[in-house]
Design a protein around this nucleic acid. Structure first.
Lengths: 194, 194
DNA sequence: ACCTGAACACCGTTCAAGT
DNA sequence: ACCTGAACACCGTTCAAGT
């Protein structure tokens, strides 16, 4: 997933340990955050991974970095799904279906959606590249078909979906209702005629 | 605002101190949260208010309770604005203008919007009553005029506005873009035809 | 080069003692 | 009846020492 085979350095003995520690930390984080939410104790994550707390900080300087490692898997799947949906007959419906998948994909545990929204910020260009590229193409197709307002930008749509995920993370039915509402248009007065 | 003149008990000497402490705590919270965000140290709030930390906890058992005391002012103004907008010529535009005011009203400091979303939950019926009532009437009017989907419910619209506020609290222009996008309709495929 | 974990700093929350 | 603040618990983060 992270494909970190830096071709510059030849494999060394210690290298395997480093990768193993990283993988263990991610696994432990997935389990701990899945149970206790994204604000769970990092000390507990390190303990479950069988490494010292310093090693956790070395690999993931901030909690957000660790969360983004977990998001990477979800983003990989979402990018694949976006490419599939490029073939859907209705561009607007295809986009909506993908946004639905985005919302449920970033609500695996409490606090994940907030991390996803942070990962979409401009100052973290790498964090969500896969999702931005694949989703952006799907968005552009829907926009060309006239199913999305001409002056809308993709990252806003994605942030809106992330916002919905944040406030409905413990209630999938509410997530569906809010997303439908935003998709259809919440308040179409005279000013909204395009 | 909170009109806590419980008619059962006659006014006693200590009572004035209690009310003064409460007012001081709210003032100190407004200043502290305004500077440092809603996750600022409560010890600092108590110190600024000139009371012990135990007094803060006695008045406001949770941080959310303190935040809701600050939200009460904003909600009072929003309720008044909703009543004014009942007279606006376009019901849909009136609702949208009010939702805009809601978003900016709950972003006075970082973390306020998240508290607002919590205050809208069903298990806190008193926390946002003024806003629910006045805004609900505005929403119903827009819905009857056909400017809002027939099957939408007001609290979902309000939560959606709160969600937008949460992810754009440091960027008013983004707030306006996201709200417009949700108002107009983000992805109108065949399924969205109503 | 990487890892460990003790040490430090800071904060939330409770509750015995005081008025 | 209300207030105080010391005491306790817990956690994030750093960094000297170890391999």
């Amino acid at each position: 997933m992270t494909s970190d085979d830096s071709p510059k350095a030849p494999a060394r003995a210690l290298r395997a340990d480093v990768r193993r520690n990283r993988a263990r930390l991610i696994g432990a984080a997935r389990e701990t955050f899945g149970r206790d939410g994204a604000d769970a104790s990092l000390e507990g994550v390190a303990r479950l991974a069988g490494v010292g707390i310093g090693t956790l900080y070395r690999h993931f300087p901030t909690r957000q970095d660790l969360l983004e490692a977990l998001l990477a898997d979800a983003y990989g799947e979402l990018a694949a799904k976006a490419r599939e949906l490029m073939l859907s007959p209705s561009p607007g419906d295809g986009l909506l279906e993908w946004l639905r998948a985005f919302v449920s994909g970033v609500t695996a545990f409490r606090g994940m959606a907030a991390a996803a929204v942070v990962s979409l910020r401009d100052d973290r260009p790498e964090a969500a590249r896969a999702v931005r590229e694949a989703g952006g193409a799907l968005f552009a197709r829907a926009q060309e078909a006239g199913d999305v307002p001409r002056d809308a930008v993709f990252i806003d749509a994605l942030r809106l979906a992330g916002a919905i995920a944040m406030v409905t993370e413990d209630d999938p039915e509410a997530a569906e209702r809010l997303l439908s509402l935003a998709a259809t248009g919440l308040a179409r007065g005279k000013a909204a005629a395009r």
